[in-house]
Design a binder for these strands. Structure first.
Lengths: 232, 232
DNA sequence: CGACTGATTGACTGCCCTCAAATAGGGTGG
DNA sequence: CCACCCTATTTGAGGGCAGTCAATCAGTCG
């Protein structure tokens, strides 16, 4: 584990988390952080463990999920560069992580331990605002996901999830928006079986509105899938 | 609208919202509140409206839901005496309500306007802690609901919802735990069609583990339904 | 050129929703 | 006290979405 403190925001990274802070505040916050490397399949926090650190993903990708009683995983959201996790640490002092977060790619993160969190929260109050803002967004996204599962068919959920994922992990390529997702990953995020995911993707490929490769999906246009994902 | 301020916590009411506060703090918070009566079907807050007040249900029952694009209602949770809503008001200054809350019974609530909220938040920091705690619980419950919809059958969801509802709105009566719920209300909360709800309830009545009346359900024992609602 | 992981396709099954129609409880006004 | 109405509830028949299982094909990497 690297323990070098980060004195500058890694270039190219922008996080809504820092939006309300002044430049000196950002500097102070970064000075208190430690930079770590993460590898695929590494568990970054485990639900139920006592929350001892707040962290921000700098590079790579992570998946937040909850483990169901029987062992199934309930996918909740992707973590992409700029996303903050471990908010329980700062939101209510002695708390436990609500969800498990696992790295799915090589990457790095900035971490603050419990003491740093509390010191920083006192030092700059706008940090608390930022945390609350992130939590609110999380809450909102969760309600949306619940609505999708209740009101939308498997096909519409898939289309919707393609759009959501595209905004998070999509890169604009020559042929359209490229997503590094396997069929299985997409199926899990949309809460659909692997087979229905495959079938719908094949159908859309036949219609010519997307192109599939092994572990990669290329969308010709986002708005098309937005309209498929809409109700009615 | 009554505008009398509440100087004492209504007798019998206890809310986790006040748990971390000292007696004088509670007094100050209550002094800033206004007591209002509410009637059935009254909308207490509407999703999307700008969040201008925080409120606490004193008596009665409310339902929190989100309106889906096509008009369907996605039930999220019951509000019972002691529950706090409109947290967006205090969590991030200029915000909008995330959900709609509607009274389902005659009742009353204590409300704080935006100015009071901000003044109180500065005055007693433990209030922010309380708000964060409520939000965390809300988040946790939401993830549980999502897991239930993803992993449990209609029958298990119904059993689980009976248990959840029993803890919130159940009264201990002569024959067991009494719930003031119509079949339709239960169906909506468990995200099941009215007909499946009726069928399962009839089946359970035949098995002798509950008794139905018009608009009322009496559970012989909670633990029985807890085991039905468990996975596997 | 294996070996492994990801993707595909077909057949089958089943849970639960939809729709239709009838029944019963509870309150109200005559 | 009874007739009436409105709402809640019940029950059956039918159908469709999507999940499960099994077997095969294809792309990558060593």
């Amino acid at each position: 584990m690297k323990t070098a403190s980060a004195v500058a925001l890694p270039s190219g990274l922008q996080s809504t988390f820092f939006e309300g802070l002044t430049a000196p505040e950002i500097k102070a916050v970064l000075a208190a952080a430690k930079l770590e490397r993460v590898s695929p399949r590494q568990i970054l926090q485990r639900e139920g463990d006592s929350a001892t650190r707040l962290w921000l993903l700098v590079t790579g990708r992570a998946a937040a999920y909850r483990v169901a009683d029987e062992g199934g995983k309930l996918f909740l959201r992707w973590g992409v560069p700029g996303d903050v996790f471990g908010l329980a640490t700062i939101v209510r002092a002695p708390a436990r992580y609500l969800v498990t977060v696992e790295a799915v790619q090589e990457g790095s993160l900035l971490a603050w331990d419990l003491a740093s969190c509390q010191a920083l929260a006192l030092q700059c109050p706008s940090l608390s605002k930022a945390v609350n803002s992130v939590v609110s967004n999380y809450l909102d996204g969760l309600i949306d996901a619940l609505a999708a599962r209740s009101f939308l068919t498997a096909e519409k959920r898939l289309a919707r999830m393609l759009v959501v994922s595209a905004r998070q992990i999509g890169r604009t390529g020559r042929e359209g928006i490229e997503l590094d997702l396997t069929n299985e990953q997409l199926a899990v995020t949309a809460n659909v079986s692997l087979f229905t995911a495959t079938r719908k993707l094949s159908k859309w490929q036949d219609l010519g509105i997307l192109k599939k490769h092994r572990g990669k999906i290329v969308l010709r246009s986002l708005s098309l899938f937005e309209s498929i994902g809409k109700p009615i």
